[in-house]
């Protein structure tokens, strides 16, 4: 049974991406709904079905649950038609999470592309709320064009802090006249900024092509596969390890994932 939640606020992040700020209808659920950074949930638009999105807000800020989604098909189009005050369903939290406790005392490098910032944002905010536990924090975020950048408000906030380094980039051709960030693909930007791999963990989320071209760059910079954390997004339905579509070999992404280190991913059958 999904929990019911009310849409409190809608933020248009980009022409095709939307964020919902959600409040559980039942106060008990709001209290007991406990999750960790990296977990996901199943959100229902009753009448059209369920869709899988990560929980984009940080567990350290529990008042409102947030999710951001790109409009693709049946369910996401249906969600897009909803207004503030409408009701949706939430099942979860499901899956594993980023091992933030283990990463204490390390430098953190966040790399995200496009909608991939959604799962990363949750971790970033979690880390920023416990800033003293971690050493240097840097963020590299890229999107196809300026209008495709999501979380512009949050990015501004991060940039205004002195204890975080933020690089935002858009693909060549995606810049606008007033654009003050970088221009270039994420892997190239990382190569240029050459972050240290010393005592550093990477949290990497984005489209498969970006991951494919970023990995060699990171390897060249000395990052080890087991220090790179990323998420896999297989088609999901149940989130409970039953419906059978999210598996990669004997790994159920909905249970054993979505967070994997690159070392783990390399060991999986290459079918994702």
């Amino acid at each position: 049974m999904p929990h019911l939640a009310e849409i409190r606020e809608i933020i248009d992040e980009s022409p095709d991406t939307r964020t919902f700020r959600l409040m559980f209808k039942d106060a008990g659920t709001a209290e007991s709904f406990d999750f960790k950074a990296g977990q996901f949930a199943e959100y229902s638009a009753f009448g059209d079905g369920e869709s899988t999105f990560c929980i984009a807000s940080s567990p350290t800020r529990k008042d409102l649950i947030e999710c951001s989604f790109k409009v693709y098909g049946k369910v996401t189009q249906s969600l897009q038609r909803l207004n503030v005050g409408d009701t949706i369903g939430i099942r979860g939290p499901y899956g594993n999470w980023f091992p933030l406790d283990e990463l204490k005392g390390k430098n953190l490098l966040f790399i995200a592309g496009g909608i991939g910032l959604a799962p990363v944002r949750c971790v970033i905010e979690n880390v920023l709320d416990k800033r003293e536990d971690y050493k240097n924090v840097s963020i590299v975020y890229g999107a196809r064009s300026v209008s495709d950048l999501i979380y512009k408000q949050e990015i501004r906030e991060w940039k205004s802090r002195t204890d975080v380094s933020v690089i935002v980039t858009v693909d060549p051709g995606g810049e606008t006249p007033g654009w003050d960030g970088e221009v270039g693909f994420v892997p190239a930007v990382i190569e240029k900024s050459a972050p240290t791999s010393e005592n550093t963990a990477v949290i990497l989320c984005g489209p498969p092509v970006m991951i494919k071209f970023t990995m060699p760059v990171l390897t060249n910079l000395g990052f080890k596969d087991e220090d790179v954390y990323t998420t896999l997004e297989n088609r999901m339905k149940c989130g409970l390890g039953k419906c059978g579509r999210c598996n990669i070999g004997n790994v159920y992404v909905c249970k054993d994932g979505p967070v994997f280190t690159y070392a783990q991913i390399k060991k999986l059958p290459q079918e994702f």
């Binding site: 229902s44 009753f46 079905g49 339905k237």
Partner: peptide, 17 residues
């Protein structure tokens, strides 16, 4: 044992998963 989950309305305001 694989399955799909879908919503189907049977009236304007009612349906089932």
């Amino acid at each position: 044992h694989c399955f799909d989950l879908v919503d189907e309305d049977y009236s304007y305001s009612e349906g089932r998963r």
